[in-house]
Simulated scan of single mutants.
Amino acid sequence: MTAVNGMSVDVRTSDGVADSYVAYPDDGAAHPGVLVIQDGFGLRPSLRSLADHIAAHGYTVLLPNAYYRHGRAPVIELPDFIDPGERPEIFQQVFPMIRELTPELLRSDVGAYLEWLAASPQVIAGKVGVTGYCMGARLAVLTAAMFPDRVAAVAGFHGGPLVTDTPDSPHLTLGNITAELYFAHAGEDHHMTPEHIALFDKALDAAGVRHRTEVYEGAQHGYTQADTSAHDPEADERHYRELLALFDRNLRR
């Protein structure tokens, strides 16, 4: 891994300015672009470290604050170590903001993020990779469907919900996707039950999407998030191996 430059940047959107974090190798070269879509807890130090880890393998990584309409990060006060069982009020604060991220707002925001990456001198021309965590996995799938000409690879980790009974359910949008997809579901996750996973896989197969789905048995929802009680170091390392392999296959030339 190489040394990384990381800094705060502002990305202008149609609704304001999304405060963001960008990381890229400290080698003076341009690299493939990657968009990281946050989990429900939002932009914070542990996610910046995740972006740094990806960047150290040769990528320019943009990590926006998806809740920017409510202020700059941290939008809500978070402890250094998040144990939702002990702090249920955190969910009460983030759920309304999650629900506000409609497909219409997502299309507008992601369009701005992709334009920012395309204009960055640290990013080579071409399609980008997207990775999402928890709610971000859902948004990553929708992003691939909305921008098939801009996205080459998508990964989703302990994501959900990917199958719902609403018209904007991610599993109903797969026909537009041209990217390769990888999903790593948590074995202990009520957001994506075995039934949900089977329905999502069936929809992926029917759409003819290049994909691979795995279940990390024993891992909890949130297993990649190092600052939470759900963190699973072994599953987290596996996540990085699969994510970087996916990006290397699709973004390297």
Results as ranks from 00 to 15, higher is better:
M146C: 11
R87N: 11
S229F: 08
D80N: 13
A18I: 04
G16I: 07
P64S: 07
Y68P: 05
S20V: 09
I98S: 02
G58D: 05
T60M: 09
A153F: 01
R238P: 07
G71Y: 07
A145E: 06
F200W: 03
R150G: 10
L114D: 03
M7P: 02
R12N: 15
L62Q: 08
G16M: 03
Y21N: 02
R212G: 07
A198I: 08
R99F: 11
E242P: 04
H221G: 06
R212L: 05
W116G: 08
T193Y: 02
A23M: 05
G126C: 04
T213A: 14
R99G: 12
G132P: 01
P148C: 15
A207N: 11
Q38P: 08
S20R: 03
K202G: 14
D205A: 09
H239C: 14
G159F: 02
G16A: 05
V141A: 07
S49E: 10
I54A: 00
P45V: 10
V110F: 04
V4N: 03
E77K: 15
P167T: 12
D15I: 09
P84D: 00
G218W: 04
L246P: 01
D109W: 05
A144N: 10
V94F: 09
D165G: 12
F147D: 04
E234Y: 13
